[in-house]
Structures are given as C-alpha cells and as structure tokens.
Design a protein around this nucleic acid. Structure first.
Lengths: 203, 203
DNA sequence: CCAAGATAGCAACTATGCGTTGCAATGTTT
DNA sequence: AAACATTGCAACGCATAGTTGCTATCTTGG
C-alpha cells in the first residue's frame, strides 16, 4: 500500500503518463519525515509537506488517501532501516543481543527517529500504522532471534523459559521507554548494562 | 494546572459564584477519559467531551486553555492510580518487583488504560504532557525502588551495577511494548516470567 | 509523428474542529 | 440587596483535512 495505490481505473495500462512518480514518492515521503521531525505528529500538516516536497497537495492525496496513510508510508521507510543487524554470529549472547538492538538505538538517537517511533506508538490506533507495526515487528526480529537463541542454547547461555521474541521485545521496550519517556540518552554504557542484565537473566 | 486555573482576574475573591466547579471538573475529566478510550487521542474532540459531560464547550475552555491541557489533566487523573504498590515488603525481590509493576499492568489491561498510555507516549511532545510524565515517572517510582534495592542487596539478590530506576523502567518499557505495540495480553504467566528474568539478571 | 492514456498542477470548494467573544442567566457571598 | 463569580448560549474566525473539475504536460504504442 505504498507505491502505485491499488486503483481499479489504473489497472489497464500502467505505462503512460507524466514523469512516473518514483521521484515524487521519494520527495513526498522525505518531506513527511522532515516535517515529522520538525513539528511532531500532531503538528504535521499535509500542505506544508506538499510545499516542502515541491509538489501539489492534490498529488499527495491522489497517492495516499488520508494523512494517516501518508504517515504510515513514511514510517515504513524509516523502519526498513531498523532491520536487525546482519546475522554475523558474535562472541557470545551479549554480543548477539547488542547487534540486534543497536540499529534501533541508533534510530532512537536522532530527532527524526524519536519522532517516528513516537508516532508509531501514539498512532498505533490507526489501522494503517497498526498493520505496519505488526508486520515490522513479527518477522523482522523473530527469525534472527531464533538463530541467536539456538546458538546461545548450544553454548549454555540460555536456559530460561523466556522465548526469543519476548526477550527482544523487552529490550526494545526498554529503549523506547528511555528514549521517549525518560528522554535520557541511549549511551553505549547504558546499552551494555541493559544487555548484560538481560543476558544474565535468561541463563 | 488542574483545578482553578491560575488566572489573575480570579485572584481577588474566589468564593462567590455559581455551583463551584468540582462536579464539573469531575464530569469533564471523566468524559475526556471516556472519549479517549472510545476514539483514541487523535479522535478526541472537545465538543463531544462537552456533550458527554453535559457541560458547555465554553466552560471547558475556560478551565483548560487548550485541548492538550485538558488531555494532560485527564491523564494525570489516571496516572495517580498507577502509584507504586504499597510498600509491603515481599518474600523476595521477585515479589517486590511484581508488586511495583502490577498496578501498571492492571491499567494496561483495560482499553482506557491503553488509550491513556498511548496518549502519554505519543503526545509526549506536548509540553503539558511531557511535564506530567516526568513528574509521575521520577519520584513516583524512585523512592520505592530505593527501598526495594537496599532490601534486595541485604539479601544478596542484587549485585548488578544497574540501579533501581533503570530496572523498573526496563520492566515498564516491556509492559508498554507488549500492551501497545504487540497488543498481546499481559497475562500473569508472562509477567512472572518477565520479572523472573529481570530478578535473575540483577543478581 | 500522433493519438491515447496517464499523471501532475491549479483553484475553488466543503466540512470539521479548535479556540474566542459578548451577553444573558443563575448562583453565592457579604 | 448588591456585588461578584460562574455557567450557558450563539455566533464567530481560522486552520487544516479532504474533494472536485479542469487544464497542462509527459510517455508510449501504433
């Protein structure tokens, strides 16, 4: 539900037209993210996005039917970058967990990232966002974690009845809380302590 | 910034007037919470709140200058109920942690509670809400945790370099993630496993 | 090259919801 | 009874979401 917009009238011939919209899509979503970082979700305004992307408001509405859909699409852009770290096996469980959590920590260390995640939590009523979050959550972290857990089991680092997902989600929740509610820095030091604690906890 | 609204003109004589507003304040805040639960933060509408509370819109605006302030006041109402569990010392660290986290878990198990916490996270840009969250967070959990940690230290259950706040906040973050993003139930079983993991982690 | 089809811009419009204002009605205190 | 405070009411101004009808421009198949 991001690019061509499933429109019956557009089903027949999809190869004609003015400059095909990839550029526009990019510009608009980038503009949306920028506005999100600048004014927050509640201050996000479609007309400003349009101006920023140097595109007409109508064009935006033709591609994304509602403000929510626009935001959801923009969020998706960013969340793709939070893909779990490449699955290079680390020295131990702590290293593996750190590798999985660090990309998110990086995102949450920028104004944009915080704005985006805030939106993801706050707007998670919106069907579009809710769907997106579910997709990104399950499936993005689950498979890497399965790998990590079985490695850790082999090394005797994992004896808990906790499953992999539950553990990552706890870590993610902790990051969110610190970044969004406490508004405290996600320092390397703190991250180390957090992961250390969790790693000890599942032994 | 909850009840009388600091208004210079009202400083002189504050004892005359129509039925003093306690009833109205209650009705309006209750209405706000109800609307929040029904339509979510983005769907919350002052005029509907007014109808629901059987009060005029103007009256609301006279007491709470903006929609944000109204929401903040309503949030505060609920968050008071999340006060840390009475400090009855439990059998062990696990029991203490459970006692501290359970009130929040209860709140997050209702539609209203989820809506409220979602609002608290999403709207934490808004100065009013941000201030509120800070106040409730620091000071609400810190002192009970100091107590719990020193008890746990005495019993040899706490050897970690993690401090008390960091641990509660991790727990709270985990609850939030599960309730708001995963939208999974905060079952007693899951809560036990979570607390068990953390308790082991700080040893 | 040309006609068809698709996309984008533009301007004007509706609808909704926030927040304001002036005034009248009603209640309380001294 | 007089003074004062609070509420209700109706009518606004204003920003922003979302729509519509039209025209201009681009791409591609023939």
């Amino acid at each position: 539900m991001t690019e061509p917009a499933a429109d019956p009238r557009r089903a027949a011939r999809r190869d004609a037209g003015r400059p095909r919209g990839a550029n526009i899509v990019d510009a608009v979503l980038a503009g949306t993210l920028a506005e999100l970082a600048d004014h927050g979700l509640s201050g996000l305004n479609v007309e400003r996005v349009a101006r920023r992307a140097e595109v007409n408001k109508t064009t935006i509405y033709r591609r994304w039917p509602t403000r929510d859909a626009l935001v959801a699409a923009a969020l998706e852009r960013v969340l793709i970058d939070v893909e779990a770290g490449l699955l290079i096996p680390g020295a131990d469980l702590r290293a593996d967990l750190l590798a999985i959590v660090r990309p998110l920590a990086d995102v949450l260390s920028t104004d944009l990232g915080r704005a985006v995640m805030r939106a993801a939590m706050g707007e998670s009523e919106s069907p579009a966002v809710r769907e997106l979050v579910r997709r990104r959550l399950h499936g993005q972290t689950t498979s890497p974690m399965d790998e990590i857990v079985s490695r850790a089991r082999r090394r005797g680092e994992w004896g808990a009845e906790m499953n992999g997902d539950e553990v990552v989600f706890t870590l993610v929740g902790a990051l969110m809380h610190r970044a969004l509610l406490e508004q405290a820095p996600l320092s390397a030091d703190w991250l180390d302590r957090l992961v250390e604690m969790v790693a000890r906890g599942v032994r």
